[in-house]
Design a protein around this nucleic acid. Structure first.
Length: 849
RNA sequence: GGGCGGUUAGCUCAGGGGUAGAGCACUUCCUCGACACGGAAGGGGUCGGAGGUUCAAAUCCUCUACCGCCCA
């Protein structure tokens, strides 16, 4: 045993992180069978910028569970992944280097970005752009790894994967091709939600509603074959040239007579029908609406169900097209159209409103309103709807049977906490279409198909050319399909590559398959899949969790993991969600340095599963205090235990046996809590026992342990202390990973993180009457209180202490009377049976008597 | 509009039929053979509100208010 003179927390993080790496403490041993493995489907953090304290929070929860399982004897498969593919990285690269991607440019192998990002972004080729993305994410990933190591995550760093790496691309493309072969992936040319800034399609899962100001514009449409007019109200007058019909509710008496008649659009004089449809809301505006292709998702439904023509007016860049989709024969129509072309939606709205005023078609001033508008969650402007060819995965959004199967998977999965299941169910229940997976972006996994070109040079989309799985990953924009030469690219009779990449979720929904080496390493895959645990935050249940279940269900007919543990958010001290835009984001490293990693972990582990938790430095200080207490209490207890061997058979004192009974209860509580992934409860139980152990038990027995009552009493106390201390250190090991390793190293061989989790077996047969510990602690507390009330030192001697209590408790106390007297410096202890618990104390005149 | 969670001490939160708890903050005291990066003690709450079940409700049930989130 080697005890430091002055124990300290200084430097424990660096010292032990390095030892763990050298010793391979957390290396996954793949020789274990599936049933002894505990595999974790780690969330790959998005590598675009910096980690924030919310990451530290949730990853600490997972790490505590990983360490518990490891100590319980499971071989833990705990990889780290980096989600580097996708838009966040592209955006970061654009800003960091001041560049933008132009796929029409040629690759420059010697390209170097400017030292200072220029104000006006430089256009570079797709391949150069992707290379810059790769360079930047490598830097970010190094910083992330440094932080994770400092935090003490027990990750096996040799298993690290990235979502843009070859293995992930191969996995993602393979899964795509298999879905294509099973007709679970398909193409469709259809109206699609579109972000005009990113110029890409967006999926339902990536939408959010934002309350935005708008205005109802009341616009008069003249009847085509009769006098008079009908007034509609719209928030989007700029879509007037895209109008294909007016619509009212079939039961709406006001408009019934108009159904089947035609009206003329103002400014453009296009004849459109007045139709009936149940989705027209009589309460909204004037109760009659114009249908445009396309203003919103209801327009899409109307367009489809009423079989209306398509009149697109918006380009992919969100500006009004050059070519009108309508005849411009009507008077003034050509001029009016010319006023709009090239304008953004916003500019067009202003101009068309002016034109409507001039022409007298705007019947009232616009009425300002606030309404929910759909945005891409990362976007800055409202989504538009444009018609494009896209790839979709069937996810139950259009198929009731598949939806039911996925709901059944949600019920099969064990959720922690249980109530999070409701989020999954409401999301799956509300799906309104299949999963749109193609993105018109660059830094992602390419859609692995080509299209043959017919004799006229037009792509034959119905007959895509697919690569052999052995050739994956492929990049169709730089590689040619089997049977074609590169010089046939773009030529009639040749081919073109699909220019799109897949949605980042289309790849990250395969993290269990990527990390587990699906098809690349079948032996590994069989040992880790389905995973035992998916830890993640609640905000991505609809995206990551759901999509992962979809993929595993379709590919394997199983869940991708059996348990999901859902972490909450970190809120700022005012209980607001932390976000970059609010400027209240806390960067973790400074707190790891300031308070110590164990202290920050303690704060994180105090957050109950699923519960949003306020960022609280106070709680970190408590963690710091706990770490120091562990240090000092261990040093002291080990000093008392000494180098002489201890023998559990020597534990005969009732107080020692009572303490061990309480320890047994604690071990049992902590274990049960961890088994249901309630790390916070486990920590709280361990902590409660530990403080009582220090305040009461150690105080009660230290004199006896030093030999005040002879060798037998000392041996009993020393052996009990050794058993308890060992268990305490291990109970805290999943949380206070550095300090527990430190104190374990003073007297034990090997890492505490590979030591067995405490078991009630360790104290079996040693559980005495719990009441002895309880009563002794109660009385000692009364004695302390008496001294404190009298403003005397805790060491002040007592002439006589009298305890009145029930017969049972007096009996229990009698068996620990000598320890109570020693700890309280009580000369005479008088025990009386009575109805009302009472402790009275007579302080000695001489404090040291 | 439907659903989920929350409301307990000044603050942050635990507890989930049997005497209201912890930490922080506050007050007072204590250097005592681990611990001043400490320790002890104390003050402080009609457990959001109203009904109900029960010998007994912070806890179970119903309604309700407010906060947050999910979905439409």
């Amino acid at each position: 045993m080697q005890l430091p003179d002055k124990p300290t927390l200084d430097g424990v993080e660096d010292r032990w992180a390095q030892r763990w790496e050298e010793a391979g403490t957390f290396r996954f041993d793949r020789s274990h069978e599936r049933k002894t493995v505990f595999s974790i489907d780690t969330p790959p953090p998005t590598v675009s910028g910096s980690l924030h304290v919310g990451h530290v929070f949730s990853y600490t929860h997972t790490d505590a569970i990983a360490r518990f399982q490891r100590m319980r004897g499971r071989e833990v498969f705990y990889p780290m992944g980096w989600d580097d593919n996708g838009l966040p990285t592209e955006r970061r690269v654009q800003n960091h280097y001041g560049v933008k991607c132009d796929p029409s440019l040629q690759y420059d192998p010697d390209y170097e970005p400017p030292d200072e990002p220029p104000k006006r972004h430089l256009s570079i080729s797709r391949r150069n752009f992707v290379e810059l993305c790769g360079r930047l994410v490598e830097e970010d990933e190094r910083k992330f790894e440094e932080l994770w190591r400092r935090l003490g995550l027990s990750v096996d760093w040799s298993l690290t994967y990235t979502t843009i790496g070859d293995a992930a691309q191969r996995c993602s493309q393979r899964a795509f091709l298999r879905m294509l072969a099973r007709d679970e992936a398909y193409q469709s040319e259809a109206p699609t939600l579109w972000d005009v800034d990113f110029r890409t399609a967006v999926a339902q899962a990536e939408l959010e509603d934002r309350e935005m100001p708008g205005a109802y514009h009341a616009i008069r449409f003249a009847h085509a074959d009769a006098d008079g007019a009908v007034v509609i109200e719209t928030t989007r007058p700029e879509l007037l040239p895209a109008c294909v019909a007016l619509v009212a509710h079939p039961d709406d008496e006001r408009y019934r007579a108009l159904f089947g008649t035609n009206v003329l659009t103002p400014l453009f004089g296009v004849e459109v029908p007045v139709l009936a449809h149940r989705l027209a809301d009589p309460e909204k505006g004037t109760g009659i609406a114009m249908i445009c292709t396309f203003g919103d998702l209801t327009d899409v439904i109307w367009w489809r169900e009423l079989a209306l023509p398509t009149r697109p007016i918006l380009g992919w860049d969100g500006r009004m097209l050059e070519t009108a989709p309508i005849s411009l024969d009507a008077a003034g129509a050509t001029d009016n159209w010319a006023e709009l072309t090239g304008k953004t939606v916003k500019q067009a709205q202003v101009r068309i409103t002016e034109l409507l005023v001039e022409s007298g078609h705007l019947v009232a001033d616009p009425k300002p309103i606030t309404h929910a508008v759909k945005f891409y969650e990362r976007g800055d402007r409202p989504l538009e709807i444009v018609t494009t060819r896209q790839w979709y995965f069937r996810n139950g959004g259009r198929d009731e049977a598949v939806r039911e199967e996925l709901l059944a998977r949600g019920r099969e999965l064990r959720w922690h906490p249980e109530y999070m299941r409701a989020r999954y169910e409401s999301w799956v229940g509300g799906l309104n279409g299949d999963w749109l997976v193609s993105r018109q972006r660059f830094f992602g996994v390419p859609v692995p198909v080509w299209y043959p070109l017919d004799a006229a040079g037009a792509p034959v989309y119905d007959n895509p050319l697919v690569p052999d799985e052995a050739l994956l990953p492929v990049d169709p924009s730089s590689e040619s399909p089997t049977g074609y030469a590169e010089d046939q690219r773009g030529e009639p009779g040749g081919f073109i590559g699909d220019p799109d990449v897949m949605d980042t979720w289309a790849t990250s929904s395969l993290t269990p398959e990527i990390a587990g080496g699906w098809e690349d390493d079948p032996d590994l895959f069989a040992r880790v899949f389905p995973m035992d645990l998916r830890p993640q935050a609640h905000e991505i249940i609809r995206t990551w969790l759901f999509s992962t279940i979809v993929r595993a269900h379709l590919e394997f007919g199983s869940l991708p993991f059996t348990d999901a543990s859902i972490s909450g958010w970190v809120l700022d001290p005012d209980r607001k969600k932390m976000s970059k835009s609010k400027g209240n984001v806390v960067t973790p490293m400074e707190h790891l340095v300031k308070h110590g990693s164990d202290s920050v972990r303690y704060w994180a582990a105090s957050g109950r599963p699923g519960t949003d938790t306020a960022f609280d430095e106070g709680q970190m200080k408590v963690g710091r205090r706990l770490a120091i207490k562990l240090l000092n209490a261990s040093k002291f207890a080990l000093g008392v235990i000494g180098d002489a061997p201890t023998d559990r058979a020597a534990i005969t004192e009732p107080l020692d046996l009572a303490m061990l009974a309480a320890l047994s209860d604690t071990i049992s509580d902590c274990t049960k809590a961890f088994e249901i992934f309630d790390y916070a409860r486990s920590l709280e139980r361990a902590e409660r026992f530990f403080w009582g152990f220090c305040d009461d038990y150690v105080e009660l027995v230290k004199n006896r342990a030093y030999g005040a009552a002879g060798p037998e009493g000392s041996d009993s106390a020393r052996a009990a202390l050794a058993i308890a201390l060992s268990a305490i250190q291990r109970l805290f090991a999943p949380f206070m990973v550095f300090v527990t390793e430190e104190i374990w190293s003073w007297w034990q061989e090997g890492s505490i993180h590979r030591a067995p989790w405490p078991s009630t077996e360790e104290v079996s047969g040693l559980e005495g009457d719990r009441a002895v510990y309880l009563v002794a602690a109660d009385v000692l507390g009364e004695v302390r209180k008496a001294k404190s009330d009298a403003k005397r030192s805790i060491r002040h001697a007592i002439d006589v202490a009298t305890v009145v209590d029930s017969a049972d408790r007096i009996d229990a106390l009698r068996s620990a009377a000598d320890d109570v007297k020693e700890a309280g410096r009580i000369a005479s202890l008088s025990l009386t049976v009575g109805d009302n618990y009472l402790v009275t104390v007579e302080l000695a005149d001489d404090p040291a008597a």
